[in-house]
Structures are given as structure tokens and as C-alpha cells.
């Protein structure tokens, strides 16, 4: 970094600050600019390792299977990324997804509403729930952690109260709600509509985050809320819109969930909530807000899927899979802390 030229000698501190970067610092800076690189490296290395352990790993059919397996978590992690970018966290996404899937399922299966209408009501419920979270966070100014811890219990209870613990099977749901289970063949890959929907969610939100002023404002609010407000960003409106959008994304995930299980049930995807946070964190998005990419989250979700799938192909106990994921999370957050220090240093 060259400082002010033409104003005489550099001071000792300025000479120190303009010393050449070491290789490690250069890596640190690169990762600071592109937080999705580190999970990508982990994903590539892990894929090679699992291919060595089992030659069935890198086949088209297994990769299709991984994509189908991660579709729920991957979809849920889209909304989670959005919330975490604003320096928040949403503990209620998993519970809300199950609640919305039960609303859709009950309306179509028990009440007999047309599938499309049940789907739209589900989306509306998702957005309404997001609005409640958003009002509590942005207007009442409760910490997101506490807010969503509360709504987590509320949504779980509502889902159980509504369904009395029973499931609605795919045959009763109709073709619209189970549309996400329809297979789609792309070359040698056997995907489902649910997988395509998940990828579409990434592309759509990715566009909004990177190419619209709303996306800029999301990053700005996560970076420094007070500064953004003084700079003329309507921070309260941004936060509200983030939680409503996250609610809609969760409702879309509920649709993916119904297709994947071919049923609406309260016993599905109970770990989904924490897994979505795992995907975001492994993907290099900072829990402190303002930094991270949706590409990273997609890679993070894939990494979780690859670890689970690869370890089970290599016949490793399920408990060791969970252990490996845990170590990945800690490594990812430690890396994030290290990267964040570049900003403070210079």
C-alpha cells in the first residue's frame, strides 16, 4: 500500500505499514475478498478423498443422490444466509418449514382445497411468520436469537396442534404439492423438480443480493446498522423485508420438503434448522454480518451432503459423520475469525 506521495518522508509507522505482504497475508486478503474459496477447497479435497475410499462416489447417480439429499437443507439455507448477512440468526426456519408444510398438507389433504391454493396459503403463512419475526427484531428491537428461539417453539407447537401428530400421505396431497418430487433428467443426472427449485432459489436471491440496491443495503445493514441508517439506508424497512423474504424462502423449502418425503409430517427434518446454519457457516458467511456469499452457502450445503454421503459409502458409522460435521463448523468459524483480523490490521 503506497501512502500519500509528494508530502515528504514517510514516518516509521508508515514505512512499517507499507512493508511488503507475506504470502500468508496475501492468502488472508484473498479469502477476505472471496469467502467462498475456503469451503470450495474443502469440498474438492473431500470429494477426491471419498472417491479414493469408494469408486462409486464420483458417479453421476451418486452425485444426483447427493443433490437430492441436500435439497431441503440447501433450500432452507438460502433464507438463513439472508438473515445471517444482516448480523442476525434465524433459529425458527426449521420449525416454520414444518409448520408451513403441515398447513399446505392439511388444507389439501384434509380440507380438500385445490393444491395450488393450499400452496399459495402456505406461502402467505410463511411471509406472515417472517413478518412477525421481522417486527420483533426491527421494530420491538429484540435480539434475533431470542426472537427466533421464541418463534421456534411457537411454530413447532402450532404444527403439532394443527396436525395432532398425524401425517398426510402423498396420495392425498395432490399433484401440485408433490410436484417437487417429479424426476427431471439432465444428461446423466437424475434430479427432481425440488432440486431445480432449490437451485432457482439460489440464483434468484443471488441476483437480488449482488445486483440490486436492496442487496447492497442488506450487506450494509449487516456491516454497520447505525452507519447505514445515517448514510440514508432505511434500515428498519430493509430488516423487515429480509425476514419476510426469508419466510417466503422457508415456505418454498416446505414445498421441497413435501416432495422429498412424499408426505407432510411433523417428524421430518427435525435437525434441518441447525443444519441450515451449518451450511451457511461452512460456506464462509460471517455470523457477525455483512460478509458472505450465497455461492458459499451452496458449497457449504454440498459439503455437508458430501461428508454424510461419502462417509456412509466408506461405511463409516453415522456418529462419526456428525463428529466430522462438528469439526468442520469449528474450523470454518475459526477461519472466519482469522480472516476478519485483516480488516483490523490495515
Amino acid at each position: 500500500m503506497t501512502t500519500t506521495q509528494g508530502l515528504g518522508e514517510l514516518t516509521a509507522a508508515e514505512r512499517f505499514r507499507s512493508r511488503p505482504l507475506t504470502r500468508l497475508q496475501r492468502i488472508q486478503r484473498l479469502l477476505h475478498k472471496h469467502p467462498e474459496i475456503s469451503p470450495l477447497v474443502v469440498l474438492v479435497i473431500a470429494s477426491f478423498a471419498f472417491q479414493l475410499a469408494s469408486d462409486r462416489f464420483l458417479t453421476a447417480s451418486n452425485m444426483s443422490l447427493i443433490l437430492q439429499q441436500v435439497s431441503i437443507i440447501g433450500a432452507l439455507a438460502v433464507g438463513q444466509t439472508l438473515v445471517i448477512l444482516t448480523a442476525g440468526i434465524d433459529l425458527s426456519v426449521g420449525a416454520l418449514m414444518i409448520f408451513v408444510s403441515m398447513v399446505m398438507g392439511s388444507l389439501a389433504g384434509n380440507v380438500g382445497l385445490p393444491g395450488a391454493l393450499a400452496l399459495l396459503v402456505g406461502f402467505a403463512i410463511g411471509m406472515l411468520a417472517g413478518l412477525i419475526n421481522g417486527v420483533l427484531v426491527a421494530v420491538v428491537r429484540l435480539p434475533p436469537f431470542i426472537t427466533t428461539l421464541g418463534t421456534l417453539s411457537v411454530f413447532t407447537a402450532l404444527a403439532l396442534l394443527m396436525s395432532h401428530g398425524t401425517s398426510i400421505q402423498g396420495d392425498d396431497l395432490g399433484s401440485v404439492l408433490t410436484f417437487t418430487s417429479v424426476p427431471v433428467a439432465i444428461g446423466p443426472f437424475q434430479l427432481t423438480v425440488g432440486v431445480i427449485l432449490m437451485i432457482a432459489m439460489y440464483l434468484a436471491l443471488g441476483y437480488c443480493l449482488n445486483w440490486t440496491s436492496w442487496g447492497r443495503h442488506v450487506y450494509a445493514v449487516g456491516s454497520d446498522e447505525d452507519a447505514s441508517r445515517l448514510a440514508g439506508v432505511r434500515t428498519r424497512r430493509v430488516l423487515l423485508s429480509v425476514y419476510v423474504a426469508a419466510g417466503l424462502l422457508v415456505a418454498l423449502s416446505a414445498w421441497v420438503l413435501i416432495g422429498r418425503n412424499n408426505a407432510a409430517t411433523t417428524s421430518a427434518a427435525v435437525d434441518a434448522n441447525l443444519d441450515s446454519i451449518t451450511a451457511v457457516v461452512i460456506g464462509g458467511t460471517s455470523l457477525f454480518g455483512g460478509r458472505g456469499r450465497l455461492t458459499g452457502t451452496f458449497i457449504g450445503a454440498l459439503t455437508v451432503g458430501v461428508f454424510r454421503n461419502g462417509l456412509s459409502l466408506a461405511r463409516v458409522d453415522v456418529l462419526y459423520q456428525t463428529l466430522a460435521i462438528g469439526i468442520l463448523i469449528i474450523a470454518a468459524v475459526a477461519l472466519d475469525q482469522w480472516i476478519r483480523r485483516t480488516g483490523a490490521q490495515r
Binding site: Y219, A220, G222, S223, D224, D226, A227, S228, L230, G290
Partner: peptide, 9 residues
């Protein structure tokens, strides 16, 4: 005085 800049942008 706090400059109101978003540090990550």
C-alpha cells in the same frame, strides 16, 4: 464523527 461508512463494502 463515526463516519457512517459500511466497513464491508
Amino acid at each position: 464523527q463515526t463516519l457512517s461508512l459500511a466497513p464491508h463494502l
